[in-house]
Write a protein that binds this DNA or RNA. Structure first.
Lengths: 201, 201
DNA sequence: GTCTATATCCAGATAGAC
DNA sequence: GTCTATCTGGATATAGAC
C-alpha cells in the first residue's frame, strides 16, 4: 500500500519535472504567450488534458520556472559573496563561470533568457511580476557591492559601482540571448575581454 | 479631384505611420504574439476592423517593422564605415552614439529590442526569419572589420575580431533590453566602461 | 476611410470514462 | 494517472452599411 503510494508520488514528481523542463525549453524559445499547452504536451508525448492534472495553467508553470531561475542566480550570488576571495577574484570567477555555463549548460542559458524575457515584457502573469520586482535587484546589488569593495582596495576602476554592475549583467544577458538563439554554434568570447571593463590596467 | 486623391493618400500614409508606430511600441513591450490587434486599434482610438484596411495581419506589420529596424541599423553601420575616422575613433563614436540613442530616442531602443526579440524567438513569421537571416550578420561583420583594422594599426586589442564584435553588439543589446524595461529611469553607463574592452591601454 | 456586426477558428480549460 | 470528448472564450479576419 505504502509502496504504491510512493511509486505514484514518484511518477507524479517525474511528470512535473518533465513538464517543467519542457516548458522551460519552449518558453525560452518562443516566449510564454506563443507557447501552447499542446506544444508542451505533444513534446512529451502525453495528452493535452494531462498537463492540467499537474498545473492549473501554463502561467502557473511559468511562475514556478521564474522562481527557480531566481533561486539559482540569487543563490549563486550569495555564494559568491561569501567566498574567501578578493573582490577582483570574485568578479573574475563570476565572469568565467557564467561564460562557461552559457557555453556548456543548456538550461543555464535558458533560465537566463527566461529572466531576460520576463523582465522585458509586460505579457506575463502578475505573480511573475511580483517575483521579479522582489528578486531582480539582488544580483545587481550583489555585484555592485563587490565592485565597491574592489574600488576600496584599488583593484576596480573608479566608475559608479552601480553602473559597473549594470554593465556586468547586461553584457551577460546579451550573451545569454545570443547563445539562446545560436545554440550549438555559440562559442563564448574570451573572459578577459569582459573583465577588462572592470579591472584597473 | 486630384486634390481629394492627394488628401486621401496623405490620410492613408499617416494612418499607416500611426499603426506602425503604435505596433512598434506594443511589440517591444509585449512581444508579437501577446499583442492583440485590438491593443493597437484601441491605443489609436480606431476600430479593430480598420487595421485590416491597412495591413493583412499583425504579422505583416511585424515584418515591415523588422525591415525598417534593419534598414536603420545596417544603414548606420555602412555610414560609420565610410566615415574618415580611425578604427578606434569609429568604435568610440559608435558606442557613444548608441548609448546616447538608447537614453534619448525611445524608438531607437524599441527597434533594438524588436531585433533582439525577433532573433531570440521562433514565434515569428517565416518572412521575418528570412529578413533576419539575410540582414542580421551585417552589423557583426561591419564591426568585426573595423576591429580588425584597428588591430593592424595597433589601437585595438589582439583578440579574435569576431569575438570583439560579438561582445560589442551583445553588450549594446543587453543595455537596450534593460532600457526597454526600465524606461525613463534608465541612465546610460559611461561609454568608457565599454570602450575599455576594445582599446589598448 | 471608417464603423458595426458577424463568422471562423483555435487555444485554454473542464468532465467523465478507463 | 491518463486519455478522449467537449465546452467556452477570446482573438483573427471578413462583410456590409455609412
Amino acid at each position: 500500500m505504502a509502496r504504491n503510494k510512493d511509486l505514484n508520488q514518484k511518477i507524479k514528481d517525474e511528470r512535473r519535472e518533465q513538464i517543467l523542463s519542457q516548458a522551460l525549453m519552449l518558453y525560452a524559445k518562443k516566449g510564454l504567450s506563443a507557447t501552447k499547452i499542446t506544444d508542451i504536451s505533444s513534446a512529451l508525448g502525453i495528452s493535452q488534458g494531462l498537463i492540467y492534472h499537474y498545473y492549473k495553467s501554463k502561467e502557473e508553470i511559468f511562475v514556478e520556472l521564474i522562481g527557480i531561475a531566481f533561486d539559482r542566480i540569487n543563490g549563486a550570488c550569495r555564494w559568491l559573496e561569501s567566498q574567501p576571495l578578493s573582490p577582483k577574484e570574485k568578479i573574475e570567477f563570476a565572469i568565467r563561470e557564467l561564460l562557461k555555463l552559457l557555453e556548456q549548460d543548456e538550461n543555464a542559458a535558458r533560465y537566463h533568457l527566461l529572466i531576460a524575457q520576463a523582465t522585458a515584457t509586460e505579457a506575463i502573469p502578475d505573480e511573475a511580476k511580483d517575483i521579479i520586482k522582489k528578486e531582480n535587484t539582488f544580483p545587481y546589488e550583489a555585484i555592485a557591492r563587490i565592485m565597491a569593495e574592489g574600488q576600496k582596495d584599488g583593484s576596480i576602476k573608479e566608475y559608479d559601482a552601480k553602473e559597473l554592475a549594470l554593465v556586468f549583467w547586461t553584457s551577460i544577458n546579451g550573451l545569454a540571448i545570443y547563445k539562446a538563439v545560436h545554440g550549438e554554434k555559440f562559442k563564448a568570447p574570451a573572459a578577459n575581454i569582459l573583465t577588462s571593463m572592470f579591472f584597473k590596467e
